[in-house]
């Protein structure tokens, strides 16, 4: 997984916050934040762990209570496919009944997307994964517009950032469509466009993310 992607996602987590992170890249980014700049970040696992420890008091059912009760600030989701409205697919590629590829399924992804105050989505930026409309809405981003979440009573803000190995996309508040706001050092806007399967909006001023520091790289290698 790209260091710059993990580092950029980790920097979006603030000290003292409560985050929930599934396995893989999401958990790596959360642990990185704890190690480097957010020592009091609570990292809840979707497997019922708290800061990596199995805790009988934090079973899967407790996690659901905390999410629905509004106690979780940020959810980190690793996606297989994402669309222009930040909706996440981790269920199937192709048709549900006749999938071309069967993915991991929902797990806690949908609850996190609904209940966490904000959601950061992580995935490598590749054309087949960045589609105008996901094959399957496993977890709702903005669905199809800025009012859809509120209309359905979904608590959190949904996807506030999609962090990839090329840069960062954030929703336009007016349309809820993702806009390219930052690229990683050395990445061109054209390259991002070429790996995105819809006419991607580009921010007026596209920022460049800070390269990973030696401390961040060391923390990633160490844990």
């Amino acid at each position: 997984m790209s260091d710059q992607m993990l580092v950029t996602a980790a920097r979006m987590l603030a000290d003292g916050e409560v985050c929930v992170a599934g396995c893989g890249a999401a958990r790596q980014a959360a642990r990185l934040a704890r190690a480097v700049h957010a020592p009091r970040l609570t990292v809840l696992g979707d497997d019922g762990t708290v800061d990596g420890l199995p805790a009988a008091t934090a079973g899967v059912a407790d996690l659901a209570c905390w999410l629905q009760g509004g106690r979780v600030d940020v959810g980190l989701l690793a996606a297989d496919q994402v669309d222009a409205f930040g909706n996440v697919n981790t269920t199937v590629l192709g048709e549900y009944d006749e999938p071309t590829n069967r993915l991991a399924g929902v797990g806690a992804t949908a609850e996190i997307a609904a209940g966490a105050s904000r959601v950061v989505v992580l995935l490598p930026h590749r054309l087949p994964a960045f589609v105008e409309r996901v094959d399957f809405v496993t977890a709702p981003g903005a669905l199809a517009g800025p009012l859809d979440r509120a209309h359905l009573g979904l608590r959190g803000s949904g996807t506030v950032a999609v962090v990839t190995d090329l840069g960062v996309l954030r929703p336009d508040p007016a349309t809820a469509e993702l806009v390219l706001t930052e690229v990683h050092p050395g990445v061109t806007v054209d390259r991002v466009r070429a790996e995105t399967g819809w006419p991607l909006e580009i921010a007026d001023e596209v920022g460049v993310t800070e390269p990973a520091t030696a401390e961040e790289v060391a923390a990633l290698r160490g844990g």
């Binding site: 269920t91 549900y96 949908a110 979904l154």
Partner: peptide, 14 residues
Amino acid sequence: TVRDGYTGTDLAAL
């Protein structure tokens, strides 16, 4: 009953 996890997803209908 749950509040979240199905609303707004494609799983709810399936």
